[in-house]
Design a binder for these strands. Structure first.
Length: 275
DNA sequence: AAAGACCCCAACCGCCGACCA
DNA sequence: ATGGTCGGCGGTTGGGGTCTT
């Protein structure tokens, strides 16, 4: 938890909405939660910047959005992450890297923040204990790296990882583009365009970002969702074989071969949610 | 029982792309 | 074409709880 402080946010780098004097920070009170929940349920999500004023909250819009998305939303599932969910997170992370939002989009009721926290506090350590590098899902070679990964204090603070996920390393943009190109049914998804044929609104962003905006009413899976379902099903694929192929992407972008994904997909069967 | 070490996770930060005037 | 605003993302922090010595 952060220290509720108005002065600490008054840096030149602070985002405007959070640097205003009089904006409350830190943990939310039950009263604030109630105000926010009632307001969003009544008025709907969106217009976060102006929401605090309209709702009568002394918070910045970002803080309101985060609180709603990660805690107050009725669809948020609280509590222990089960073995099935854990396995799914591992599979998705192996394929997608630290794309927590995308991973969360495939796990009903879980938020990106929750999955990110769970990964950092549980799964990464679990993989390390199994001799697997949690960043690459590749077997750890140098034992010296183990203690450095186990303790946050031993890693360089305030620095982003220099070792990207192997898939991302091949260039995020090319990866996503290749994913779409390399699977039937995705040729209609182009960068910057929305595919709204299903109830999920799939948006392929620039810089390789892929966002899946869910229809809270649920419904038919769109093609991208189906594609992800097939990706996370590797029951017909040897894990080591998959890893070996994924790690073939560690060389520059031109080594990324979308044909690989097609062949892998062909081998994948028995959808996770279907089974 | 006390103190220090360690862990968890809610919340914040900085950045990015989309959108709009 | 440009600049401002907004929503959303991943990375990071640090207070408080728990564990260990």
């Amino acid at each position: 938890m952060r220290i509720p402080s108005s002065s600490s946010s008054s840096t030149s780098k602070a985002t405007p909405c959070c640097s205003k004097v009089g904006i409350k920070r830190g943990p939310w009170t039950p009263e604030e939660d109630e105000i926010l929940a009632n307001f969003v349920q009544k008025e709907g999500e969106g217009r976060w910047r102006t929401l605090p004023k309209r709702a009568g909250l002394q918070r910045c819009g970002k803080s309101c959005r985060l609180r709603w998305m990660n805690y107050l939303r009725p669809s948020v599932k609280r509590g222990h992450i089960g073995p099935d969910e854990e396995d799914l997170i591992l599979r998705l992370h192996r394929l997608l890297g630290n794309r927590w939002s995308l991973i969360a989009g495939r796990i009903p009721g879980r938020t990106d923040n929750e999955i990110k926290n769970y990964w950092n506090t549980h799964l990464s350590k679990k993989l390390i204990s199994q001799g697997i590098d949690p960043r690459t899902h590749k077997p750890l070679i140098n034992n010296d790296s183990i203690p450095n990964l186990q303790r946050r204090e031993n890693s360089e603070p305030n620095k982003k990882s220099n070792i990207p996920h192997p898939i991302s390393q091949a260039s995020n943009y090319q990866t996503d583009a290749a994913i779409h190109q390399g699977s039937t049914g995705y040729q209609n998804i182009t960068e910057g365009n929305h595919n709204s044929t299903g109830n999920d609104d799939v948006v392929v962003m620039g810089m390789g970002r892929v966002e899946v905006k869910h229809d809270i009413n649920g419904g038919q899976e769109d093609t991208f969702s189906s594609f992800l379902d097939s990706l996370i099903n590797d029951s017909g694929v040897d894990n080591q074989q998959l890893q070996d192929n994924v790690f073939a992407f560690t060389s520059p972008a031109q080594s990324f071969n979308p044909v690989f994904w097609e062949s892998e997909l062909d081998q994948m069967s028995n959808g996770y949610f279907r089974g």
